[in-house]
Simulated assay, not measured.
Amino acid sequence: MISREIWETLLLDSELLKLVKTPLFLSILGFISFENTLSLKHWKTLTSTKARLEYLFDAYWEAAITRDIVTPQMELQGYRSPTYRRKNPPSRRQTRKWLVFLAQQLHRESQTEFFIEEMQPQMLTKKIYQWQYWFLLFSFAVVCTGIIVTTSLLPYFQPPSSLGIFWLVLVLGLIPGFIFATESKPDGARLILYPFVTLFCWLFNRVPWV
């Protein structure tokens, strides 16, 4: 419940009032009012909409980072949080660091909402981590497509040994696996080829192009 004093303060700033009528800001106001992290005395001394909005976000951050999310029953079981269970949750500094990183990524992609299912490997800061992701995806795609194709051919062609089946899976799954792993992902092909290009450039003293 948003207090009457907050609404009276908002009525003095038409721009801020227009903004806080959105569901997101109404939720923020309700949350910081419940947690009592907003100082109306200090807020009233601010003279610009930008300063009031920044202070509002600071109050929301303080309320969110300090709220108690562990029930007494969970504490008795030794849990520190529902997510991290018995592990220590991230510190305030770590949480702020990754939130800033996420905001920078959203700004770079011109997005305003974050969905974990839409995360892309380009968010990984180091190229080696991106390469590991694409290599694992490529390997998984090769094995899966290779098994499917090989299983379809077994009634018509029987390899001489189990080792022959293994190589057949790899050979038949190589091209479709590469296509599957890099479909609509142009950086995928570049990163899968990254170690081979790097090795070639190192051997022949060339500048890498990927």
Rank of each mutant, 00 (worst) to 15 (best):
E5K: 07
W7E: 10
T9D: 11
L10I: 13
V20T: 00
T22E: 05
P23F: 12
L24M: 13
I28Q: 02
G30C: 06
S33I: 05
F34I: 07
T37G: 03
T37K: 14
L38E: 02
L40A: 01
K41S: 10
K44I: 08
T45A: 13
L46Y: 00
T49W: 02
E54Y: 07
E54H: 12
E62I: 08
A63R: 08
R67D: 10
D68G: 08
V70I: 11
P72H: 04
E75C: 06
Q77Y: 11
G78M: 02
G78R: 02
Y79A: 00
S81M: 00
Y84G: 10
R86W: 06
K87D: 14
N88I: 09
R92Y: 11
A103D: 08
A103L: 12
A103S: 13
Q104V: 05
Q104P: 00
L106T: 10
L106K: 09
H107G: 11
H107I: 06
E109A: 12
S110T: 15
Q111W: 04
E113Q: 15
E113I: 12
F114T: 03
F115T: 11
F115S: 14
I116T: 13
Q120G: 03
Q120L: 02
P121F: 04
Q122R: 14
K126A: 01
W131R: 14
Y133A: 11
Y133W: 07
L137G: 08
S139Y: 09
F140P: 07
V142S: 00
V142I: 15
V143H: 09
V149I: 14
T150C: 03
L153Y: 06
L154P: 00
P155A: 06
S162T: 15
S162Y: 14
L163K: 10
G164V: 05
W167H: 13
L170A: 09
L170H: 00
G173V: 04
L174P: 01
I175F: 13
P176G: 03
P176I: 04
I179C: 10
F180N: 04
A181Q: 10
A181D: 03
T182N: 02
T182Y: 02
K185G: 05
K185F: 06
A189T: 11
R190M: 10
R190V: 11
I192P: 07
Y194I: 00
T198H: 15
